[in-house]
């Protein structure tokens, strides 16, 4: 088993190289980027200067930067070299944990990401834990009480949640419970007076701020997880080994929890590791609605603004987590299913 996981870990390397090389190449080929932005900024600046001075230096407006200046900029951002060479250089820096400098903020990318990481990780971890905590018991209940009142009503609720995109739910929650009725803060992660609060107040403040975004995050994932749990458990309840267990003298309840339950966790375990990449990616739309300063929003805005070092930095982190998550899933499956042997 150990050798299998070592092999899987080694396979992360080429996959990671592939992902980053493709995205790196795309950032070089698409129009836009830091140099174009500086050119347009310079254009605006010289235009306003020209207006205020009132002189006739309009010839310079067409080309606010001289070709030499542009060459200098290209050199500064490393655009003067061929794609592959600069990819190798970028990769070399990444290996020393240097993700470069943002072309918008001129701060180290790692510092910017590090700032947003706790918020995203908080939402990711809490969402995952709550989803499992709610969906597994709910799925079990629905399976045991199949076709009962509680099964049907919870199905309706869960399916409505599934049908609504997370950001729509976010907007609904934002407009009524938060804005209209004033039950919850209008977004943000903590209050401005956070520093002055007692510990208990601080905890409550974080919870109070996160209730609505958490609902928006979780509601879409509920249906898949709950129905996966319900359907696999029902399959297992109809299986021969449950009949064996009951024929042994077990009550139905014990048969469910001692025999069917662990078998039904196998498909859930296959998903488990993939959650850690969701931890961080978040949803920029939900982050946007609730003004949460997380990685999802950062990645999206960097993309719009062509802040490639940040785009690549976020990519490095999410892709490594995604790849490790897959391995973690394999590990979880091996943990609950003794038939799975990796070698």
């Amino acid at each position: 088993m150990a050798s299998y996981f070592i092999r899987r870990l080694l396979l992360v390397i080429p996959t990671f190289l592939g992902i980053t090389l493709v995205v790196f190449t795309i950032t070089r080929l698409v129009p836009g980027g830091p140099i174009e932005r500086i050119i347009s900024e310079a254009q605006q600046m010289s235009a306003t200067e020209g207006d205020s001075a009132g002189t006739s230096q309009s010839a310079a407006n067409d080309a606010p930067l001289s070709p030499e200046q542009i060459e200098m900029l290209k050199e500064f951002y490393g655009f003067d070299k061929p794609i592959f060479i600069s990819y190798i250089e970028w990769l070399g820096k990444v290996l020393t944990l240097d993700l470069g400098t943002s072309t918008r903020y001129y701060d180290p990318v790692w510092d910017i990401i590090k700032d947003k990481l706790p918020v995203s990780a908080y939402y990711g971890v809490v969402t995952t834990i709550l989803t499992y905590l709610i969906c597994i018991p709910l799925g079990v209940l629905k399976a045991i009480k199949h076709k009962s009142f509680i099964d049907s009503t919870s199905s309706i609720v869960v399916l409505i949640g599934y049908a609504l995109p997370g950001f729509i739910v976010a907007i609904i929650l934002f407009v009524w419970p938060a804005a209209q009725w004033d039950w919850f803060p209008l977004g943000g992660f903590i209050s401005e007076e956070f520093e002055d609060f007692t510990a208990a107040e601080q905890i409550w403040d974080v919870i109070h701020h996160s209730i609505l975004p958490l609902i928006a995050y979780m509601i879409g994932g509920f249906a898949t997880m709950t129905f996966l749990m319900k359907n696999t458990l029902m399959d297992h309840l109809a299986s021969d080994y449950i009949r064996t267990a009951i024929a042994k003298g077990l009550s139905f309840r014990s048969a469910v929890f001692k025999h069917a339950f662990r078998n039904s966790l196998i498909p859930l375990a296959t998903h488990f590791g993939n959650n850690i990449s969701l931890f961080l990616a978040g949803s920029f739309l939900i982050e946007k609605v609730f003004n949460i300063d997380g990685l999802g929003l950062l990645g999206f805005e960097s993309l719009v603004e062509r802040d490639y070092p940040i785009v690549l930095g976020v990519l490095v982190i999410t892709s490594i987590l995604g790849l490790l998550g897959n391995i973690l899933s394999d590990f979880c499956v091996a943990l609950v299913d003794p038939r799975v042997k990796f070698d």
Partner: peptide
């Protein structure tokens, strides 16, 4: 006590 037709599935796999 009872034993069944399908020994392949009558035991709990885990």
């Amino acid at each position: 006590s009872m034993i069944f037709q399908e020994p392949m599935t009558a035991l709990n796999p885990v």
